[in-house]
């Protein structure tokens, strides 16, 4: 019996831009087990959202070129038709976005937007309403009977994100993708919202792909952690293992910089330089220009993913 719910294999995503193709994700592989939480971390621009959107096959600009495979419950999401993908979204995979104000349609009442999801499963108007009220109760929105009538801008950021959680778990998906679900929220609200999300997912038995800058969150709710740099997954493993024994120079820098990471920016103060935008794939380590251990090998050949323990992947020449 396979216990893996999502298996991403050699995923690469290039965005077509004026100057050519931007390599946003390169050769990324990971998997998530049933009921488990995988956290993806990395500075802004590392390609985390791109991974998330690619799994859901969501696109704003329709300018991406995708390679590799994404197996979800046995079917390859990169191969199925759009009509089949419509049946996967919401029903089998839910997704929460970073900014809860933009994520809800300003012209509809919050409850009706949740009901809209439920109605896809054939619930009557009345049944959907009852269920939305129950869901609001589950995500601890006070006065659910009233709040379902509220428009998004009448709700606080934390409340809106609870609505999103309710909406995306309404149809009992097996996987929830949460792309920085609390980055836009106050620190105090952040913990509440995360706990609600985690509890709901535990109750549903849903797996989570959690994208975040916050290592505190990772420590608290994730089972595994994947660290991304410039479109590549540079280290992946069990959370405690990686926290105790980070192997990749970038992971080490990230963890060393821990208290100094600015939540809103997701940049790391102690490492010089910024995440490069890769326009041309070259045989090199993408971290070489910031890495203290870089040498000629690193500048002229790409490190391959290798396992230093059965469960601990790292991508570096020197490890």
């Amino acid at each position: 019996m396979e216990d893996t719910i999502l298996r991403v294999e050699h995923l690469s995503v290039d965005y077509k831009i004026k100057a050519g193709y931007l390599s946003a994700v390169n050769d990324v592989s990971f998997s998530i087990d049933r009921g488990k939480v995988l956290a993806l971390v990395g500075e802004s621009g590392c390609g985390k959202s791109t991974v998330a959107h690619t799994i859901m096959r969501l696109s704003i600009d329709h300018n991406e070129r995708i390679g590799g495979n994404i197996f979800f419950e046995g079917q390859d999401l990169t191969k199925i038709s759009e009509a089949e993908m419509e049946k996967v979204r919401g029903k089998h995979i839910g997704m929460i976005f970073q900014n809860p104000l933009d994520s809800l349609n300003p012209v509809y009442r919050s409850g009706s937007q949740v009901a809209e999801a439920l109605r896809l499963d054939g619930l009557s108007k009345h049944e959907a309403r009852e269920r939305v009220i129950q869901l609001y109760r589950d995500v601890q929105i006070p006065n659910p009977e009233e709040r379902i009538e509220a428009f998004p801008h009448e709700l606080s950021g934390g409340m809106r994100q609870r609505v999103m959680i309710a909406m995306m778990l309404a149809r009992h998906p097996q996987l929830l993708i949460a792309d920085e679900p609390t980055t836009a929220l106050d620190v105090t609200v952040e913990a509440q919202v995360l706990n609600i999300m985690k509890e709901m997912c535990d109750k549903e038995g849903a797996s989570v792909l959690l994208i975040t800058h916050n290592f505190g969150i990772v420590a608290e709710i994730a089972d595994r952690i994947g660290i991304m740099y410039a479109g590549e997954l540079v280290e992946e493993g069990e959370v405690h293992e990686i926290f105790r024994n980070p192997v990749h120079p970038y992971s080490q820098a990230l963890l060393a910089a821990l208290p100094k990471i600015k939540k809103s920016e997701g940049t790391i103060q102690t490492i010089e330089g910024t995440v490069p935008r890769i326009l041309e794939k070259k045989p090199e380590c993408r971290f070489a220009n910031r890495c203290p251990y870089a040498d000629e090998t690193c500048r002229f050949s790409s490190p391959e993913a290798k396992f230093i323990a059965p469960d601990h992947m790292v991508r570096c020449h020197k490890r």
């Binding site: 933009d102 999801a117 896809l120």
Partner: peptide, 17 residues
């Protein structure tokens, strides 16, 4: 409007095009 996040949300919850 197509670039608005809520359009992605609408797709994400499973609505047809």
């Amino acid at each position: 409007v197509l670039r608005e996040k809520y359009v992605l949300t609408a797709y994400a919850k499973g609505l047809k095009k």
